[in-house]
Design a protein around this nucleic acid. Structure first.
Length: 648
RNA sequence: GGCGGGAUAGCUCAGUGGUAGAGCAGCGGACUCAUAAGCCGUUGGUCGUGGGUUCAACUCCCACUCCCGCCA
């Protein structure tokens, strides 16, 4: 629950500038935007921060590869996020980049202060380092002496680093989390953090030697080191609002009302960050809210399987507002949700086209025909009018509650219910019948009440669909540019006599694919209902569309190692490299290939096949092979060719 | 393996000690202002399995199975 305090300061994580924006980034940012817009609607002073994390090895590497400086690389790629936010109607108040002087200065001051206070100390240690993963491992974490993540060999290295004395704050943090149940949300995430804190904390390594990573913020007290990226990144939440630079601004906004994060970065935000703040003597944020992930269908979204939803593309196809609405209405905050175009179309048609868009069409048409496009007088409300009125006004309260309780899905459902109630009201009153009688007041009363209900609905949905709701409000002749909660809790603000807009289709219904082709084929001929059994079964070998073929992602892969799967005659377990990504797959080729001959071969794999467990061994992908009778040959590419290349 | 959460209509989920609900999807109907929309009606569930407490359990307790999350 977000405190109903005097201000609302909401943050998203700062996104790694090297990443390609996907639906996850879009979701967190839209959620923050919606919360920010609702708080503005509630007249709460609001500050909404997002930004980009621009340091780290991957940026450095990408820049080296392109032959430019890391800063140039960051400058060139950060626009992918900035452009997307523009497209998604994001109204952030600030966009912080960790390479900006205003941020770097604060990180350095902060490190200096912690160092002087003795919170940071230098120590030497050694361990196992996996270069591609950029990670250290303890001896016990290694798998057969190799990196547990990517299975590649690790190097023993010995180096110095700086450490933050975290362990001394462990008991304090546990106590704090228990005393402030709203600090970590949802509840089950709080339990996870408390579970994590049951083990003793080790001190946090807060530096990286420049010999290993130079693209970072230099430590003020030791030029051979840069700040660990998380310490650098987390600090954005305070550096952006004036910590150590603008006391007035800082006092205005800090502590943040809500850090919105994905569930994958819970520990950094609920253990490291609070301890950093405590060590600095800064107040903790009021809440850290970890939301779930968007699954694509049933599976986790991943770059390598290629099932990443590109928000830009989706918005181009279906529009920003419906996209925002779907994300907010479909996900129960905190839980995972499934993203599919089918689900989107279903919800879009049901809620937006059939319910909301359609009622606007029918209302505008009737007002146009029956009252010359002028909003009529409300007259005396009867029983049904009073009920509709109550439902509309109450939904404003329900939405307010949903916002403070982080249950946007419920708030939106409450508003949709009002739209349905308005549809039912029209059916019951039948204004098209009332229009035929001499006394027009009953007709006018119905039209006014329906229109006024839509005014409130349009205001309540405005933060989610600013563009479409502006259109709706203009159609209703509403003057104020942005709605205000007071006007949404009050009935009767539309002025009789106002000229309303012409009939319009706010959310065109999306026809299912089959029907779309039916109608286009039938162009010029009178539309007829397609027969129910229109689908023809394919005969023989079915032809596929190119688009279907494209769904299958074929890539070249290099075989790193191969071994027989115990207890299976035909199976080999292969470790392969697909463009730098290590994968394991199981192939039924043991009777045709000797495991020892395979390493080094470049083969072709189906890269986006759903993972499967074969004989208890996980398999991520499938090898292509030609077979004829008992013969079988692997599909390979000619000559020496890079792995990860697209095959088509 | 430890801790936590879950298992309810085809799908997504709500629910409470007293014999199950919503939305979507499906089916039928009347209507016509409307986006083949909307409205009305309706088909679907022995509420994971087995035991126990109780006058009464989907709801409480125990065991089991499966799923998810965090940790190891």
């Amino acid at each position: 629950m977000i405190m109903k305090s005097k201000k609302f300061y909401v943050t998203t994580p700062i996104y790694y500038v090297n990443d390609r924006p996907h639906i996850g980034h879009a979701y967190t940012t839209i959620l923050a935007d919606v919360l920010a817009r609702y708080h503005r609607l509630l007249n709460v002073p609001t500050f909404f921060l997002t930004g980009a994390d621009e340091h780290g090895q991957k940026v450095q590497q990408a820049a080296d590869k392109a032959g430019i400086s890391p800063q140039q690389h960051a400058d060139a790629t950060v626009v992918r996020f900035q452009d997307l936010w523009k497209k998604l109607e994001i109204t952030h108040d600030d966009f912080i980049r960790t390479t900006e002087p205003r941020h770097k200065t604060v990180v350095q001051k902060l490190f200096q202060a912690l160092y002087e206070k003795g919170e940071i100390y230098r120590a030497e240690y050694d361990g196992w380092y996996c270069v591609p993963c950029e990670r250290f491992f303890m001896e016990k974490d290694l798998e057969n002496g190799a990196c547990p993540d990517c299975k590649r060999p690790v190097d023993r290295i010995r180096e110095s680093n700086y450490f933050l004395r975290m362990s001394q704050y462990q008991d304090w943090l546990i106590q704090y989390i228990q005393d402030n149940p709203k600090f970590i949300q949802p509840d089950f995430r709080r339990n996870e953090t408390l579970g994590f804190l049951r083990k003793p904390l080790t001190d946090l390594c807060v530096s990286r030697p420049k010999s290993r990573l130079s693209w970072g913020i230099e430590l003020p007290f030791d030029k051979d080191f840069v700040a660990y990226v998380w310490c650098d990144a987390l600090t954005n939440y305070i550096s952006a609002v004036g910590y150590l630079s603008d006391d007035v601004k800082f006092k205005t906004w800090w502590p943040a009302s809500c850090h919105l994060i994905g569930k994958d970065i819970l520990t950094t935000h609920t253990v490291y960050w609070p301890i950093m703040l405590k060590a600095m003597g800064v107040e903790l944020p009021e809440s850290v809210f970890a939301h779930g992930w968007w699954l694509v269908g049933d599976s986790k979204m991943s770059k390598t399987t290629g099932n990443v939803v590109d928000p830009m593309e989706f918005v181009d196809k279906h529009g920003v507002d419906p996209f925002r609405y779907f994300l907010m209405a479909e996900m129960i905050l905190g839980q995972d949700a499934s993203f599919t175009e089918e689900a989107f179309v279903r919800r879009y048609n049901a809620d937006l086209a059939n319910d909301l868009g359609n009622i606007l069409s029918r209302l505008l048409k009737m007002i146009e025909s029956y009252t010359g496009g002028l909003l009529p007088e409300p007259g005396q409300p009867g029983e049904e009018e009073l009920q509709l009125r109550a439902a509309a006004v109450e939904s404003a309260g329900a939405m307010e509650l949903a916002i403070t309780g982080m249950r946007l899905d419920q708030g939106l459902a409450a508003v949709t219910n009002v739209v349905r109630a308005a549809n039912r009201y029209l059916e019951k009153k039948q204004p098209w019948t009332l229009a035929k009688q001499a006394d027009k007041q009953p007709l006018h009363t119905v039209l006014y009440h329906a229109a006024e209900t839509l005014r409130i609905v349009s205001g309540l949905l405005f933060p989610v669909m600013p563009g479409k709701m502006t259109e709706l409000r203009q159609a209703l002749g509403i003057q104020e540019a942005t709605p205000d909660i007071r006007s949404l809790k009050e009935w009767g603000l539309l002025k009789p006599g106002t000229k309303l807009g012409a009939m319009q289709v706010l959310f065109p219904r999306i026809m299912p694919e089959e029907k779309k082709t039916e109608t286009s084929v039938g162009a010029g001929t009178p539309p007829s209902r397609p027969p129910k059994e229109a689908k023809t079964e394919p005969v023989g070998v079915a032809l596929v569309e190119y688009a279907d073929f494209q769904k299958i992602q074929l890539r070249t892969a290099r075989i790193i190692s191969a071994e027989k799967v115990a207890g299976a005659d035909k199976l080999l377990k292969l470790q392969i490299d697909v463009g730098g990504e290590a994968r394991q797959l199981v192939a039924g080729i043991a009777q045709h290939y000797d495991a020892a001959t395979l390493p080094g071969k470049t083969v072709v794999v189906v890269a986006n096949l759903k993972p499967a467990v074969i004989r208890g061994v996980e398999s991520n992908g499938m090898l292509l092979a030609a077979s004829h009778g008992k013969e079988l040959r692997l599909v390979t590419v000619e000559g020496d060719f890079s792995s990860g290349a697209v095959v088509k």
